[in-house]
Amino acid sequence: MLVIGREVGEVIAIDEHIKVKVLSVEGNVVRFGISAPREIEVHRAEIYRRIVEQLAKDAG
């Protein structure tokens, strides 16, 4: 795991198409803005887990 410290307003580049910007930090809550092409799905981990579970159920 890569650990990067950033301040509000700073950006992390995943590649030339995906950018993550720190919008705010309030206590233990960090708000990010994510820019990615529409064809790339971006989900919180708990939502992604539900999607994977549902796909597994649908597959059989």
Rank of each mutant, 00 (worst) to 15 (best):
R44I: 11
Q54W: 06
V29C: 01
A45W: 13
E10P: 02
H43N: 13
L2T: 11
R31W: 06
R6T: 01
R50I: 05
V30D: 04
V8K: 04
E53R: 05
G9L: 03
I12E: 00
V25T: 08
R38N: 14
A36T: 10
V3R: 13
K19L: 12
I4P: 01
V30F: 04
G5C: 04
R44K: 09
I18T: 01
I14C: 01
I40V: 15
S24D: 15
I51Q: 14
I18E: 02
L55D: 07
V42T: 14
V52P: 01
A45Y: 14
P37M: 04
V8A: 03
A59S: 15
I51R: 11
L55K: 14
A59V: 05
K21V: 11
E41M: 10
V42F: 08
L55N: 07
P37A: 00
E53I: 05
L23D: 05
V52W: 00
E10N: 12
V25M: 02
E7G: 13
R6V: 05
E16L: 06
G27C: 01
R38K: 12
V3Y: 12
Y48F: 10
I47R: 11
G27I: 07
V20F: 13
E39K: 03
S24H: 08
A13I: 00
I18H: 00
A59K: 10
I47K: 11
R50N: 09
N28R: 14
R6W: 08
N28T: 06
S35V: 03
N28D: 15
G60W: 00
R6D: 02
V42A: 08
V22E: 04
P37E: 06
E16V: 01
G27Q: 03
K57A: 10
A45H: 15
I40C: 09
I12L: 06
N28F: 12
V22S: 03
R44T: 11
R31Q: 15
D58W: 12
V22Y: 04
L23Q: 09
V30E: 06
R44S: 05
N28Q: 13
R31I: 13
Y48G: 08
S35W: 04
R38W: 07
R50F: 08
V8C: 04
E46I: 13
G27S: 08
A56W: 06
A36M: 01
E53T: 07
V29W: 05
I34G: 01
A36I: 01
N28K: 11
R50T: 07
